[in-house]
Each structure stands twice: as structure tokens, then as C-alpha cells.
Computed example of a mutant assay.
Amino acid sequence: MTSSPRSSRTLAVAGGAVLLVALGLVALMLAGRSSGGSATPPAAPAETSADVGFARDMSVHHQQAVEMSFIVRDRTSDVEVRRLAYDIINTQANQRGMMLGWLEMWGRPKSSGAPPMAWMGHTFTPRGDGSLMPGMATDTELDALQKAEARDAEVLYLKLMTAHHRSGAEMARAAADAAGTEEIKNLAAGMVRGQQSEIGLMADMLKERGATA
């Protein structure tokens, strides 16, 4: 099975479309609030808030999960793994679009020169190998996934995504506790539930393939 050079282009196009939809949804939400009797819309979260930091960092985290899922889609014909990959692509691309949409509506940049995870009270120094935050795959691991096929690709993807989800769920728990907006609190809490469920699913899938996380 050959690697598809279209994955990165597909990701860019899909991400742009999701962002446009998310911006529209966020605009409708804000319009609904202001027409519901409140003359002044809620103040935007501060630049240093957990809301803004989480939206930025988790957008980056999600982007890599979507990228890995596009890769494995082209490296295996296994129905179960491809279904999981499609679920992650759809869910996390949509969530990423929502977070970027909120940053846009809040008037906050989508990227920052501050270290990742500073909003959590600690920072992670990127090692320059593609792993920008805990749980993220390195460039070497992504290259290995691109070259793997069939069962080898499935096992590597499931292991990488399990680590990705564990760190993502930890970040989401912190945001659910520290965020000041209901949007981020609710989204982060939902991420924790969804990713914990998928971690359990992936553990079973690895066991079926004679491997562990």
C-alpha cells in the first residue's frame, strides 16, 4: 500500500472548511446571546487565560492527531482502524475549528511566542523533533508511520494515538477546571470523556493485534 501525498493537502482544505463553519457557528452563538436581553456581550478572555492558552495549544495537539489519522487511513485496509481514524479526523478537526473560531471572535492571535502549556502553570520546552507538547509524536515516529503498512501501521498508530490522547485528556482536565468561559469548560469536559473512551477502545484493539500501549 503506498503513501498518499494528498494527505497534507486534504488536511489543509478540510481544516479551512471546518474553520469557516466554526466561525459561522460562533458568530451565531454570540448573536443569540446579545439578542437574548444582554446589551453587552461577555468580555473576551484575557491573553494569559486558560481559555486562550488551551484553545491555542489543543488546536496544535488536535492538528497532529488528524494528520496521523489521515496517514493510517492510507496505510491499512482494516475496517476497524479506518473507522477510528475517520472518527478522530471528524471530531478533532471540528473541535479545532471551534477553538480557532473562538480565538478569532475573542480577537486573540491563533499562535503565540509563549511556551506551550504556560496557562497550566508549567511549560513544556519543545525538543525540536516535532513533539511540541507531551503526547505528540516526533518527526521520526511520523516518518515511521508513513513507511509502515497493514498491521505494523495499525499497531504504531494505536500506540502513538494512545499517548496522544492521554496527554490531551490531561490538558483538557486542566482546562475544564481553570477556564472562565462555558464554551471551553464544556468542550474540554467533553474531550476528556471522548478521549478516555477511545483510549479504552484502542487498548482492546492493540490486544487483538498482540500488542500493548
Rank of each mutant, 00 (worst) to 15 (best):
G101V: 08
S7T: 06
E154V: 03
E80I: 13
T125F: 06
L206Y: 04
V192F: 08
A172I: 10
L11M: 08
L100K: 03
L20M: 04
L23Q: 11
S197K: 13
M205G: 05
G101S: 08
S38R: 06
Q196L: 02
N94C: 12
H61L: 12
I184F: 10
S38M: 04
P126Q: 06
P41H: 01
R33G: 12
A114W: 00
V79F: 15
R33F: 15
V192I: 13
K147N: 03
G113S: 10
D78V: 05
M68A: 15
A163D: 15
E183F: 11
G168N: 10
M98N: 11
A55L: 11
G113W: 01
L103K: 00
A137T: 06
L19H: 12
R82G: 13
M68N: 11
H165D: 01
A178R: 10
T2I: 09
A144L: 02
L201N: 02
E149S: 09
A163T: 09
G121V: 12
A85I: 00
A174M: 07
S34G: 06
M202R: 02
N90R: 07
E183P: 10
A150Y: 13
A43P: 02
I88E: 07
A118W: 13
H164D: 07
A22Q: 05
P41F: 00
M191I: 15
A213Q: 13
T162R: 03
G37L: 02
M120R: 14
R75I: 03
R56C: 04
A17Q: 05
P109A: 00
A31E: 14
A44L: 02
M1N: 03
R193T: 15
A203M: 08
L142W: 08
Q146F: 09
M99R: 01
A137Q: 09
N94H: 14
S34E: 06
A46W: 04
K147E: 01
P116H: 14
R75P: 12
R151D: 15
V18D: 14
T162L: 10
Q95C: 08
R108H: 02
G121E: 14
